[in-house]
Design a binder for these strands. Structure first.
Length: 273
DNA sequence: AGATTCGCCTGAGAGC
DNA sequence: TGCTCTCAGGCGAATC
């Protein structure tokens, strides 16, 4: 389930194979991804250069010529692998992107929640990116900003931490981890967080994500990097998926609940309010 | 406007 | 063994 660290891991893995190369061919075997992939895309992409591979939120942006951008989202089960040698496509291998130097990128996505779209406009003003909040590891995400955005909001802090309009890239795993690290209960009303709470939480979000990026992401079931290797942040998880097990910090059994439809685990002792 | 739920998907695991 | 049920979740759309 790719969140920011997993997408960043993929970006770092594929960028050296794509930047400065030309697209030879897109083989689109299954256009029924999210929103439906334009079946004209192979014709539109053939022969075009890839200048840069960047990330915004959980999107990968391949900057092409003429101001176009190929926008890739991995949904929650998407994987992009660089294949050292061509292999016959398997089930759920929905597209291949081949460069003129022969690099082969293969997209695999059992749940098909991912998307592939060609933008002809500046990506940051597209409907997909324009409403997004700041990058959690960037300079605009700080305690004062978060405090201002949470003021007056009655929804849980966990729900708003996962709201991409407030801050991007934080999904269910890292929201739970950051809240544990900051000592804040996930179900607490966001508007009731003090300014120091917000500073602590921002520091925890940044530290958690940075550690996860350094570890190559979290591999639970199906995530792996562009080289096919799994991440290893899962061994550092303090609360996610550990309902009933002892808190790694204090030993008390971890509690769980459902917050806006998503499972949440926390420590009643380390996260008092 | 804000809060919450639904729907899109398939695979894994539990229970019978 | 094999069926059915539940859960997982990013995120846009729909609903409350």
């Amino acid at each position: 389930m790719p969140e920011l660290p997993e997408v960043e891991t993929i970006r770092r893995g594929i960028a050296p194979w794509l930047e400065g190369q030309r697209i030879a061919h897109l083989e689109l075997r299954e256009p029924r991804l999210r929103f439906g992939v334009d079946t004209e895309l192979p014709a539109l992409l053939a022969g075009r250069p890839v200048h840069t591979v960047t990330r915004r939120s959980k999107y990968l942006l391949l900057a092409l010529d003429r101001g176009s951008t190929l926008l890739i989202h991995l949904g929650m089960s998407g994987r992009l692998h660089v294949l050292p040698t061509p292999l016959p496509p398997g089930k759920h291998d929905h597209y291949d992107l081949r460069t003129e130097t022969g690099a082969l990128l293969r997209y695999h996505d059992p749940r098909r929640f991912g998307s592939l779209q060609l933008l002809e406009q500046a990506p940051e003003s597209s409907r997909w990116l324009r409403e997004l909040g700041p990058e959690p590891l960037g300079p605009d995400f700080d305690g004062d900003y978060l405090h201002a955005r949470l003021r007056g909001r009655s929804a849980s802090i966990k729900a708003l931490l996962m709201d991409a309009r407030i801050v991007v890239g934080v999904g269910n795993i890292y929201a739970q981890e950051a809240l544990h690290a900051a000592g804040i209960r996930p179900g607490r009303a966001a508007g009731r967080l003090s300014r120091p709470d917000c500073h602590r939480l921002v520091a925890a979000v940044r530290a958690t994500l940075a550690q996860a990026v350094a570890a190559g992401g979290t591999t639970l079931r199906d995530f792996s990097g562009a080289d096919g290797k799994p991440g290893y942040f899962q061994q550092d998880l303090k609360v996610y998926g550990r309902l009933g097990q002892p808190c790694r910090r204090c030993g008390v059994p971890l509690r769980g609940s459902r917050i806006t439809g998503r499972s949440s685990v926390w420590c009643a002792q380390c996260q008092p309010r």
